[in-house]
Simulated assay, not measured.
Amino acid sequence: MLNAPVCYILADVHLQPDHQDPINLAFIRFLTEWAVQADQIYILGDLFEAWVGDDLGTITYAEEIAAIKALVQQGTQVFIGHGNRDFLLKKTFYQASGAHPLEDITKANIQGTDFLLLHGDQLCSDDQAYQKMRRWFHHPLVQWLFLRLPKSKRKQIGEKLRVKSATYSQQKPIEIMDVANQAVESLMQSYPQIKHLVHGHTHRPAKHRLDGKLSNKTRWVLGDWRPEAQILKIEQGQPGLVSFK
Protein backbone atom coordinates (compact mmCIF):
# COMPACT_ATOMS: atom_id res chain seq x y z
CA MET A 1 0.00 0.00 0.00
CA LEU A 2 1.38 3.39 -1.02
CA ASN A 3 1.94 6.06 1.62
CA ALA A 4 -0.63 8.87 1.64
CA PRO A 5 0.61 12.20 0.19
CA VAL A 6 2.02 14.60 2.78
CA CYS A 7 2.44 18.37 2.57
CA TYR A 8 4.19 20.64 5.08
CA ILE A 9 3.63 24.39 5.37
CA LEU A 10 6.09 26.45 7.41
CA ALA A 11 7.24 30.02 7.90
CA ASP A 12 9.60 32.24 9.88
CA VAL A 13 12.62 29.95 9.91
CA HIS A 14 14.97 32.97 10.05
CA LEU A 15 18.06 31.15 8.79
CA GLN A 16 21.25 32.77 10.11
CA PRO A 17 24.48 33.61 8.23
CA ASP A 18 26.24 31.02 10.43
CA HIS A 19 25.71 27.55 8.94
CA GLN A 20 26.29 26.00 12.37
CA ASP A 21 23.54 28.01 14.05
CA PRO A 22 21.00 25.68 15.73
CA ILE A 23 18.22 27.03 13.50
CA ASN A 24 20.17 26.26 10.33
CA LEU A 25 21.06 22.77 11.54
CA ALA A 26 17.42 22.10 12.46
CA PHE A 27 16.25 23.27 9.04
CA ILE A 28 18.70 20.98 7.24
CA ARG A 29 17.55 18.11 9.43
CA PHE A 30 13.92 18.93 8.60
CA LEU A 31 14.72 18.78 4.90
CA THR A 32 16.52 15.45 5.12
CA GLU A 33 14.23 13.72 7.63
CA TRP A 34 10.70 15.09 7.10
CA ALA A 35 10.56 17.04 3.86
CA VAL A 36 12.22 14.31 1.83
CA GLN A 37 9.16 12.14 2.50
CA ALA A 38 6.69 14.86 1.48
CA ASP A 39 5.19 15.61 -1.91
CA GLN A 40 5.08 19.38 -1.35
CA ILE A 41 6.66 21.96 0.93
CA TYR A 42 5.38 25.53 1.24
CA ILE A 43 7.51 28.17 3.00
CA LEU A 44 5.48 31.33 3.65
CA GLY A 45 8.19 33.93 4.02
CA ASP A 46 11.06 34.85 6.34
CA LEU A 47 13.02 31.75 5.46
CA PHE A 48 16.07 33.99 5.90
CA GLU A 49 16.89 36.39 8.72
CA ALA A 50 17.91 38.97 6.13
CA TRP A 51 18.18 39.08 2.35
CA VAL A 52 19.63 42.17 0.70
CA GLY A 53 20.00 40.80 -2.82
CA ASP A 54 20.41 37.50 -4.64
CA ASP A 55 24.07 38.24 -5.37
CA LEU A 56 24.83 38.28 -1.63
CA GLY A 57 22.21 35.88 -0.31
CA THR A 58 23.02 32.98 -2.63
CA ILE A 59 26.59 33.06 -1.30
CA THR A 60 25.76 33.62 2.39
CA TYR A 61 23.19 30.83 2.45
CA ALA A 62 24.78 28.57 -0.17
CA GLU A 63 24.60 25.41 1.97
CA GLU A 64 20.93 25.84 2.82
CA ILE A 65 20.02 26.66 -0.78
CA ALA A 66 21.92 23.57 -1.99
CA ALA A 67 19.92 21.46 0.48
CA ILE A 68 16.65 22.85 -0.91
CA LYS A 69 17.86 22.12 -4.45
CA ALA A 70 18.69 18.53 -3.47
CA LEU A 71 15.19 18.12 -2.05
CA VAL A 72 13.66 19.39 -5.29
CA GLN A 73 15.83 17.08 -7.37
CA GLN A 74 14.66 14.02 -5.43
CA GLY A 75 11.06 14.85 -6.31
CA THR A 76 9.56 17.14 -3.66
CA GLN A 77 7.92 20.32 -4.93
CA VAL A 78 9.05 23.37 -2.98
CA PHE A 79 7.23 26.72 -2.98
CA ILE A 80 8.74 29.77 -1.26
CA GLY A 81 7.13 33.17 -0.71
CA HIS A 82 8.33 36.53 0.52
CA GLY A 83 8.32 37.68 4.14
CA ASN A 84 9.16 41.01 5.69
CA ARG A 85 12.81 39.92 6.08
CA ASP A 86 13.37 38.43 2.62
CA PHE A 87 11.06 40.33 0.28
CA LEU A 88 14.01 40.83 -2.11
CA LEU A 89 14.14 37.18 -3.17
CA LYS A 90 14.41 37.32 -6.95
CA LYS A 91 14.88 35.13 -10.01
CA THR A 92 18.47 34.07 -9.26
CA PHE A 93 17.45 32.64 -5.88
CA TYR A 94 14.60 30.62 -7.36
CA GLN A 95 16.85 29.29 -10.11
CA ALA A 96 19.53 28.30 -7.58
CA SER A 97 17.10 26.60 -5.19
CA GLY A 98 14.73 25.05 -7.72
CA ALA A 99 11.81 26.41 -5.71
CA HIS A 100 8.68 27.97 -7.19
CA PRO A 101 7.78 31.54 -6.12
CA LEU A 102 4.50 32.24 -4.35
CA GLU A 103 2.25 35.22 -4.91
CA ASP A 104 1.66 37.71 -2.08
CA ILE A 105 -1.61 35.84 -1.51
CA THR A 106 -1.68 32.33 -2.96
CA LYS A 107 -4.65 30.04 -3.47
CA ALA A 108 -3.36 26.47 -3.38
CA ASN A 109 -5.23 23.24 -3.89
CA ILE A 110 -3.54 20.67 -1.68
CA GLN A 111 -4.80 17.09 -1.79
CA GLY A 112 -8.17 18.28 -3.06
CA THR A 113 -8.64 20.98 -0.41
CA ASP A 114 -8.21 24.71 -1.12
CA PHE A 115 -5.97 26.76 1.16
CA LEU A 116 -5.21 30.48 1.20
CA LEU A 117 -1.51 31.07 1.92
CA LEU A 118 0.33 34.29 2.80
CA HIS A 119 3.11 35.52 5.04
CA GLY A 120 0.70 37.37 7.30
CA ASP A 121 2.12 40.86 7.72
CA GLN A 122 -0.49 42.12 5.26
CA LEU A 123 -3.12 41.35 7.90
CA CYS A 124 -1.54 43.51 10.61
CA SER A 125 -3.55 46.49 9.43
CA ASP A 126 -3.78 48.15 12.86
CA ASP A 127 -0.04 48.85 12.67
CA GLN A 128 -0.37 51.69 10.19
CA ALA A 129 3.28 52.78 10.45
CA TYR A 130 4.42 49.29 9.48
CA GLN A 131 1.96 49.08 6.57
CA LYS A 132 3.23 52.39 5.22
CA MET A 133 6.81 51.14 5.43
CA ARG A 134 5.81 47.85 3.82
CA ARG A 135 4.23 49.59 0.83
CA TRP A 136 7.38 51.67 0.42
CA PHE A 137 9.76 48.68 0.53
CA HIS A 138 7.63 46.70 -1.92
CA HIS A 139 7.59 49.48 -4.50
CA PRO A 140 9.42 48.21 -7.64
CA LEU A 141 11.39 51.44 -8.07
CA VAL A 142 12.60 51.43 -4.45
CA GLN A 143 13.76 47.83 -4.81
CA TRP A 144 15.43 48.55 -8.16
CA LEU A 145 17.41 51.44 -6.66
CA PHE A 146 18.35 49.53 -3.50
CA LEU A 147 19.67 46.50 -5.42
CA ARG A 148 22.00 48.78 -7.36
CA LEU A 149 23.73 50.05 -4.25
CA PRO A 150 27.20 48.63 -3.44
CA LYS A 151 27.16 45.32 -1.57
CA SER A 152 28.74 46.84 1.53
CA LYS A 153 26.09 49.56 1.65
CA ARG A 154 23.25 47.06 1.31
CA LYS A 155 24.69 44.95 4.12
CA GLN A 156 24.92 48.02 6.33
CA ILE A 157 21.36 49.12 5.61
CA GLY A 158 20.07 45.57 6.09
CA GLU A 159 21.68 45.29 9.52
CA LYS A 160 20.32 48.67 10.61
CA LEU A 161 16.83 47.70 9.51
CA ARG A 162 17.08 44.38 11.36
CA VAL A 163 18.08 46.11 14.61
CA LYS A 164 15.43 48.77 14.12
CA SER A 165 12.79 46.10 13.57
CA ALA A 166 13.73 44.35 16.82
CA THR A 167 13.56 47.62 18.77
CA TYR A 168 10.28 48.54 17.10
CA SER A 169 8.73 45.20 18.07
CA GLN A 170 9.70 45.66 21.72
CA GLN A 171 8.11 49.11 21.90
CA LYS A 172 4.80 48.33 20.18
CA PRO A 173 1.86 46.71 22.01
CA ILE A 174 1.53 43.11 20.88
CA GLU A 175 -2.13 43.66 19.98
CA ILE A 176 -1.13 46.21 17.32
CA MET A 177 1.44 43.87 15.78
CA ASP A 178 -0.99 40.94 15.65
CA VAL A 179 -3.36 40.42 12.73
CA ALA A 180 -6.54 42.48 12.76
CA ASN A 181 -9.81 40.53 12.85
CA GLN A 182 -11.34 42.89 10.34
CA ALA A 183 -8.51 42.27 7.87
CA VAL A 184 -8.90 38.50 8.25
CA GLU A 185 -12.66 38.66 7.78
CA SER A 186 -12.38 40.91 4.73
CA LEU A 187 -9.85 38.59 3.12
CA MET A 188 -11.87 35.43 3.75
CA GLN A 189 -15.05 37.06 2.48
CA SER A 190 -13.20 37.56 -0.82
CA TYR A 191 -12.65 33.80 -1.04
CA PRO A 192 -15.99 32.30 0.08
CA GLN A 193 -15.15 28.77 -1.11
CA ILE A 194 -11.90 28.55 0.87
CA LYS A 195 -12.15 27.28 4.45
CA HIS A 196 -8.48 27.36 5.48
CA LEU A 197 -6.26 30.43 5.84
CA VAL A 198 -2.59 29.78 6.68
CA HIS A 199 -0.01 32.41 7.63
CA GLY A 200 3.04 33.10 9.75
CA HIS A 201 4.73 36.39 10.74
CA THR A 202 3.27 36.82 14.23
CA HIS A 203 5.15 33.85 15.75
CA ARG A 204 1.99 32.92 17.68
CA PRO A 205 1.13 29.41 16.45
CA ALA A 206 -2.50 28.46 16.92
CA LYS A 207 -5.70 27.24 15.32
CA HIS A 208 -8.45 29.87 15.24
CA ARG A 209 -12.07 29.35 14.26
CA LEU A 210 -13.58 32.48 12.71
CA ASP A 211 -16.80 33.99 14.06
CA GLY A 212 -20.31 34.59 12.77
CA LYS A 213 -20.99 33.87 9.13
CA LEU A 214 -17.38 32.74 8.73
CA SER A 215 -17.57 30.13 11.49
CA ASN A 216 -16.95 27.35 8.96
CA LYS A 217 -13.48 28.79 8.26
CA THR A 218 -10.23 28.21 10.13
CA ARG A 219 -7.12 30.39 10.47
CA TRP A 220 -3.90 28.47 11.04
CA VAL A 221 -0.96 30.45 12.44
CA LEU A 222 2.52 28.99 12.01
CA GLY A 223 5.31 29.41 14.55
CA ASP A 224 8.90 30.49 14.21
CA TRP A 225 11.79 28.08 14.80
CA ARG A 226 12.86 29.27 18.24
CA PRO A 227 13.01 27.01 20.16
CA GLU A 228 11.03 24.56 18.00
CA ALA A 229 9.05 24.83 14.81
CA GLN A 230 5.26 24.74 14.71
CA ILE A 231 4.33 23.77 11.16
CA LEU A 232 1.19 22.64 9.38
CA LYS A 233 1.04 19.05 8.19
CA ILE A 234 -1.60 18.13 5.63
CA GLU A 235 -2.36 14.48 5.08
CA GLN A 236 -5.37 13.16 3.17
CA GLY A 237 -6.59 16.74 2.96
CA GLN A 238 -6.68 17.14 6.74
CA PRO A 239 -4.47 19.89 8.28
CA GLY A 240 -3.00 19.95 11.78
CA LEU A 241 -0.18 21.74 13.59
CA VAL A 242 2.84 19.60 14.48
CA SER A 243 6.11 20.37 16.27
CA PHE A 244 9.56 19.87 14.84
CA LYS A 245 12.16 20.15 17.59
Rank of each mutant, 00 (worst) to 15 (best):
L187T: 06
Q128K: 09
A99T: 05
Y130F: 07
S125L: 04
L118Y: 08
T167G: 01
L149Q: 04
P150K: 10
N109E: 15
K151C: 09
G83F: 01
L117N: 03
L89W: 10
I110R: 00
R135K: 15
L161E: 10
A108M: 10
M133A: 12
I105P: 08
E185K: 02
D178F: 04
F146H: 13
K107W: 05
A183P: 00
Q182H: 07
A129V: 13
L89S: 06
K155R: 11
N181Q: 12
Q111I: 02
Q128C: 05
D178T: 08
H82I: 06
G83W: 00
H139Q: 14
T92M: 03
T167H: 14
Y130S: 07
K153M: 15
A96P: 03
K107R: 14
K91Q: 14
P150I: 03
K172A: 09
I176R: 07
L89C: 12
N109L: 14
G120P: 03
Q170G: 09
P101V: 00
S125D: 06
A180P: 04
Q111N: 03
K160M: 12
Y130I: 01
P101H: 03
H119K: 00
S169Q: 15
L118R: 04
Q128T: 08
I110D: 04
K91I: 10
A108P: 05
L147N: 03
S97G: 01
L147Y: 04
G158T: 09
R154W: 02
E185D: 11
M177V: 08
R162I: 05
H82Y: 08
D86A: 11
K107G: 01
E103Y: 06
P101N: 01
K151D: 13
S186C: 11
Y130E: 03
R154P: 09
V163I: 06
S152N: 09
K155Q: 15
H138K: 13
P150W: 06
F115E: 11
N181V: 12
K90G: 12
P101T: 00
I174D: 15
K153W: 12
F93S: 11
H139A: 08
F115G: 11
S125V: 09
R148P: 07
R134E: 08
H82T: 06
A129P: 08
